[in-house]
Structure formats: C-alpha cells, structure tokens
Design a protein around this nucleic acid. Sequence first.
DNA 1: GCTTAGATTTAACAAAAGTCAAATGTGCGG
DNA 2: CCGCACATTTGACTTTTGTTAAATCTAAGC
Lengths: 232, 232
Amino acid sequence: MASEATQYIGDLTLIKGVSADTRHKLLNGSSFEIVRPDTTIVSEGYHLDHLHFVLDGVVELSASTSESRTVISLLHAGDTFILSAVVNDAVALLSARSLGRVEMVRVPAGLFRRCLRRDPKLLHNVSVALGGGYRNMVRYLRDHKLRTADQRLAAYLVRLLKAHGGAPEVTLPLRKHVIASFLGMKPESLSRAFAGLHALGVSVDGDRITITDPEALERFANIDTKLDGADA
Amino acid sequence: MASEATQYIGDLTLIKGVSADTRHKLLNGSSFEIVRPDTTIVSEGYHLDHLHFVLDGVVELSASTSESRTVISLLHAGDTFILSAVVNDAVALLSARSLGRVEMVRVPAGLFRRCLRRDPKLLHNVSVALGGGYRNMVRYLRDHKLRTADQRLAAYLVRLLKAHGGAPEVTLPLRKHVIASFLGMKPESLSRAFAGLHALGVSVDGDRITITDPEALERFANIDTKLDGADA
DNA sequence: GCTTAGATTTAACAAAAGTCAAATGTGCGG
DNA sequence: CCGCACATTTGACTTTTGTTAAATCTAAGC
C-alpha cells in the first residue's frame, strides 16, 4: 500500500496496540484511495467486502427507501465504516458517500476478520469501537424520539460549540441541507428552526452562527451532560 | 449461583463456546434474580456495575428527559443488557425496567471485563453481539426517520406476523401504550394508526389482530427484506 | 461585472401527530 | 354482581412539520 497512508494507519484507534504481525498483514492487504466528491462508496443492501478508514474529508452514511433518503451519520478522519457489517459478515444497512474529496484506506473484509481471529488486541479494539458506535446510535435515537426539531438544532449547536472550544461564533461544517437531513428535518424546517432559536440568542449569517447564551440553548435542548457527552 | 440458572446460561449466545474456565468464573461470580413487575433494574446516567442476562420475561429499555420518556428496546429470554455500557465501562444511556415478572442473571461488570481480556472466544461473541445490537439500532433509526407512524405500525405487525410463522391472526405481546412508545407515538395515535390500517386488511379486537393481506402491509410499510430482516 | 445553477429562505397551505377531554371497555377486589 | 382504577378509543382542536412555489442569495465561470 502507498506509503502516504502507512504513517496514519498506526495512529487509528482501531489499530492501536495490535501486534506487529497484524499491522503488517493489514497494511499489506489494504489500499489507499482518493475519492472524488459525491461518490458512492458503499451501497445499502449489498454485502460489504471492505472495511474503510477515513483519513481525510467527510463521509456521510445514509439510509433510503424508494421514497426518501436520510443522513444517519457523518464520519471524519480516524473513523471507520462499516465495522458492524464487516464483523458480522453481513449486508450494509447504510450507504456511504463522500461529501467533498475523501482520502481513505480500504481493508478487505475477509482479511480483517482473519486478523480479528488471531489478534485479541484488535478484537478488543473492535469491541470498544462497536460499543461506542452502539452508544452513539442510542444517543442519536434519544435525540430523535425525545426532542423537537428546534431542540435537536439547539443540541447540535451546543455540541458544535463545545467542539470549537466554546467560542461564541462557529462555522457550520456542512451544507445546511445535509445538517437538516442529519437532524431529521427538511431544509425549510431547518431555516424555521434557526429563526425559532433567534429568541435564545442564535444569529445566523450564511454558515456563520453566533451564539450569545449557550446555557439558554442547553436548557432549551434539555441536555444532560452525563448522557449527551461523548464517551471518554 | 443457584443451579436453576446454570442450565440456561451455557445456552446463551454470548457464552456459547467459551472456555470451561471462563464459564466457571462467570457462573461463580454471578447471581440469579427474580424481579417483580415494574421494577427499575438499571437507571440511565449511572455507572453500570452488572451485566444482565434475561432468562424469562420482558425487559424494557427506555430513555427519558425531565419531560418525557420513550421505549427504545424490548428484551426477551436470551438477551443481554447493557453490554455496551459494560464493555466500555461507562454510564448507562438507557434505563431498564421489568414488564411483568422477570428472571435474570447478574454478572459483575468488572468480572465480565476480566474474563473478556482472557478469553478471545468470549470477546468474539461480544463483538458479534455488539455488532448485531448496532445494526438493530440502525434498523430502528431507519424506521423512525423514514417511515410515518402508520408505516411503523404496519412494519411492526409484519415482523410480528413473521415471528408467529405467518398465521393470519396474532396477539399483541405487550400493552398498547408500550407498543405506542416503542413505535414513537402516543397511545391515541396508535389507535388512529390501527384505524388507518383497516383499509389494508387489519382488524383489531383488543389485543387480537387479524391481518388479511400481509403483502399489502409490507408494500405499505416499504419493507426491504434485505435490510429489514434480522441478521443470520 | 454578468449569468446562471444551485442553495437557502420565505410564505401560504396541507398533512401528520400531539393535546385535552370525554366516552367506552376491561378486569379485579370486594 | 358492583364499582373502581386503569387502559383504550374517539372527537375536537392545536401544534409541528412537510409541501409547493416563489423570492433571494451565493459562488463559479465567462
């Protein structure tokens, strides 16, 4: 595999601490890929034959029926997809698509499963990653079943704010229609939700958001730090 | 631990095939419990110090805020909770409550994690279980983001029908308000959803449901067998 | 600077689901 | 058998969100 990626892959959480042999096998079997914007990488309903590691860019996981499509997850450098389908040797339940240019590494699913059988440390990393993924899905589900559209936006902004170290102004990292779909609403509803949060000190200018009262937002979104915070 | 449970625990998917030593350690450290109806077994937000195995009865996992509560998952004999919190040594994101009388086994979380470190087979089982759990959450999320309330009920009935081997008449296994919450709606909306499905051949008499045209229901619910079916 | 395709916003209206309240059903203890 | 407590259903109404269409806005090329 191209040496550009070699340096990164050892840093990936999933690979950290595995045996030299495992690392060597994985590196040898995998390939580095650059994916152009708006390219489908995985199609739901099809058996998955590669595990993917995102090195750079954003990958969107979505679900669709004949009638509609919704964004379920947004992946960044260091994330993996779709681990559960590879571990369980099953069809993908989600489609993966590049938003913008993406650099990634593909590891053949069979190879990965073989390494899993031989290296308990890798297996342990996988368990922790799957456990974390499960917990993220539960948080996301909470978000959707317990909060209104306005509250979901508020919670999203609060998370964004924390990720940016609490600066009062943040830039949306994605197009609004992607954010809308991720938050489970139509773009029109997202516009209205932003308007609705104006009273709580949220101002919008394109993709620059100013937040004067983060605590008010948190209260409005009903955020429980114990539950909403990311895992350690 | 009481011998009543010993016979069951070896059959549990999670425990299948582990070393005799692991099995022995787990059995020795765990306790058999009978839980009366409507008892809280796990509280969200608190650190989890036991892994639970359901031997009999139904356990409901729910999420709540100060304002409301929603059922996220329903567990039966053979299921485990809350595996991800135990594996990741973290607070529970969901509360667990017995619906009706429940028999279960409690394994100390620390003991379980220690066994995990020593027995790769157990670790492998855990990975598969977590992967399956993640996939179930994704299916559930699809359900909620992509389907209307009427479609969710239709999909639920189709699954129920298949679980019962396709008999045209099924009995609801739970109170309607629990089903309503699980399906993400109010009891009043569930009543209306049943009424709305009458045109597709669904008749309701208390908890006995008659379904004359399962295919029509499937089409209406937009079910994709590849994606909606349970894992192998 | 101008044009244009696409994204976002706004507005008017429609559909879906929640709320509140009353009616009806159901099962259990007395 | 009666009556109470609770679950479910029904109806009227409200709120939330989606739909459609038009108005703006924005950025990439020309």
